[in-house]
């Protein structure tokens, strides 16, 4: 079984989903250009259409549930919240009353502006979210390393993510340890604030001290040898079609931007 597993690395790594198996850079460029286009357009019809597209597309990639969960939270805190706030914020230019809630008049102008702003915020956020939902960080880093970015960068990104998981576990253990010493963690805010220091300090100190050993351990595995690296787990390189696609999307974004700026200048 282990031999079989080992040999599976001889082929390019694949998930079986058309989108997910695109080269990370391709996904990055496509997502980013679409995300940016919502900002450039600054139009709620376009922005929300793109958001709708994200939803459908996310299900198509098999990450629909995951995407919906985070995106809905964003939708509430950015989308709805912003729209409501904007009704308070805008004082000038409001001429067309729309409706009234308990004596609070909503105007059409500020409502549209708020929709525009929240649509591009969500349009941008959704694109980035979709990218990270469908691209593991290690894939992105793999692509970066092939572009000549140092493996140190990969280490920093990937190890940070693991550290977050590990330190979370440690923080629970530390909290227990300090409770066992008699430090109260329940009670009024002052008592609880006081408990913050005996928890965070051993966490940081312990984690810092461990870096010494970590660097020694990584060095023992030739981390700082300056040679060309090889990769056990490999991704299928960018195909010709992917390259053309990336080029098209980038050109589209650039022309859109130019057109928008020109239009603004003419006005």
């Amino acid at each position: 079984m282990h031999v079989e597993f080992g040999n599976s690395f001889k082929k390019f790594y694949k998930t079986g989903n058309f989108w997910c198996d695109l080269y990370p850079t391709t996904k990055l460029i496509l997502c980013f250009t679409v995300a940016m286009s919502t900002i450039v357009m600054n139009n709620w019809i376009y922005g929300f259409s793109v958001c709708l597209f994200y939803f459908i597309f996310a299900f198509f990639t098999g990450h629909g549930k995951q995407f919906t969960k985070t995106f809905l939270i964003l939708f509430v805190i950015i989308g709805l919240f912003l729209v409501v706030i904007r009704q308070v914020g805008m004082r000038t230019g409001n001429v067309t009353p729309m409706f009234e809630i308990f004596g609070w008049i909503w105007y059409r102008e500020s409502f549209i502006t708020s929709l525009d702003v929240s649509s591009y915020m969500l349009g941008f956020a959704g694109g980035i979210l979709l990218f990270f939902d469908t691209t593991p960080m290690r894939d992105l880093m793999y692509a970066f390393e092939h572009m000549g970015v140092s493996h140190v960068t990969s280490f920093i990104m990937l190890s940070s993510m693991q550290n977050i998981i590990d330190l979370r576990k440690t923080s629970v253990a530390i909290l227990e340890s300090q409770k066992s010493r008699g430090i109260e963690t329940d009670g009024n805010i002052l008592v609880r604030s006081k408990a913050f220091f005996p928890t965070i300090s051993p966490l940081i100190l312990g984690a810092f001290s461990s870096t010494e050993e970590k660097s020694i351990a990584m060095d023992a595995r030739a981390f700082s040898v300056k040679r060309k690296h090889t990769f056990l787990r490999e991704l299928k390189p960018m195909s010709q079609i992917e390259k053309i696609l990336c080029l098209l999307f980038s050109l589209a974004l650039i022309s859109l931007t130019v057109w928008k700026i020109a239009a603004a200048l003419i006005k």
Partner: peptide
């Protein structure tokens, strides 16, 4: 009772001292 209160009677030294020292 809270753990912190019981700790006055029952002290507990964890396996890893670094989870405590600061």
């Amino acid at each position: 009772k809270t753990t912190a209160f019981i700790a006055k009677s029952v002290g507990y030294v964890f396996q890893n001292p670094d989870e405590q020292i600061f």
